[in-house]
């Protein structure tokens, strides 16, 4: 069985028609992500982070190249299959939470399981289990509008985890949180990664959040620019990230 949860090879994404001015959002990007790894993607605005995430998350299609997630080549799939794939294999955490405000926290978390046709008897223990891990059991019957930003992001994380996906894709999850909540969320993600062996891909421009990752890929002008691994303490890794970013700036 494949050791990699994600295998990206020669990935290109070009905007614009051939006759017009073309823009290479992704230029021959190749990398792998091991099962259970916590990888960060960093880069300045317009570097191609979001495009990379959208293509990997099957929300956007690649112009060329292959992406394999958990051994499945998603570049050859049709719309319906992609939707099913997303609902089974991927979990999403977004900057603006993306909770459905017309559903309770419980219903939000239960939704991915409902969509897969899991019976409501089996849904209940799964929701409570994941809510317990994220410390949000007390707010399950509340509506998103009545809970805090940090709680919303935990609810969103619970929804991303409840169906035990192959990989979690987090797009600036701390972007809308204050530093205390951001820290707490990142610690939760690390906890999930270490204890449950969840593979996480984090897209961020915040060095502090990124310092919780095991490995960071820097992207610039649609190309992979540099890759660093965390070897010792998080603070040291944070410094190392800042240095790389300074290097960018030059």
């Amino acid at each position: 069985m494949n050791q990699h949860v994600l295998h990206v090879k020669n990935l290109n994404k070009v905007y614009g028609k051939k006759s017009e001015n073309q823009y290479h959002a992704l230029n021959n990007v190749s990398f792998d992500m091991a099962r259970g790894e916590f990888v960060g993607i960093m880069g300045s605005s317009g570097a191609g982070k979001t495009t990379l995430l959208n293509v990997i998350s099957t929300l956007d299609s690649a112009t060329s190249g292959t992406i394999e997630i958990a051994g499945t080549n998603i570049t050859a799939m049709k719309q319906g299959q992609l939707a099913d794939f997303r609902s089974e294999q991927l979990g999403f955490i977004f900057q603006d939470f993306n909770l459905l405000e017309n559903l309770t926290v419980y219903e939000n978390i239960a939704l991915p399981l409902s969509l897969q046709g899991v019976s409501s008897k089996k849904i209940k223990p799964s929701v409570h289990k994941v809510a317990g891990k994220l410390g949000i059991e007390a707010i399950l019957e509340k509506y998103p509008v009545t809970i805090s930003g940090g709680q919303k992001q935990r609810a969103a994380a619970a929804r991303a985890l409840v169906h035990e996906p192959a990989m979690i894709l987090a797009d600036e999850p701390t972007g809308a949180l204050d530093s205390k909540n951001a820290k707490s969320l990142m610690e939760t993600l690390v906890h999930l990664n270490e204890n449950l062996d969840t593979s996480i891909m984090l897209v961020t421009h915040d060095p502090l959040s990124a310092s919780y990752c095991q490995r960071i890929l820097f992207i610039q002008d649609g190309k992979l620019f540099k890759e660093i691994h965390r070897k010792n303490s998080r603070t040291a890794f944070h410094q190392e990230i800042l240095d790389v970013l300074a290097e960018f700036a030059e």
């Binding site: 998350s57 609902s87 459905l100």
Partner: peptide
Amino acid sequence: SRYNMLRKIGVRKGL
């Protein structure tokens, strides 16, 4: 935005 979110978490268009 609600429908867009549902699409992101993998709800088929038919559904």
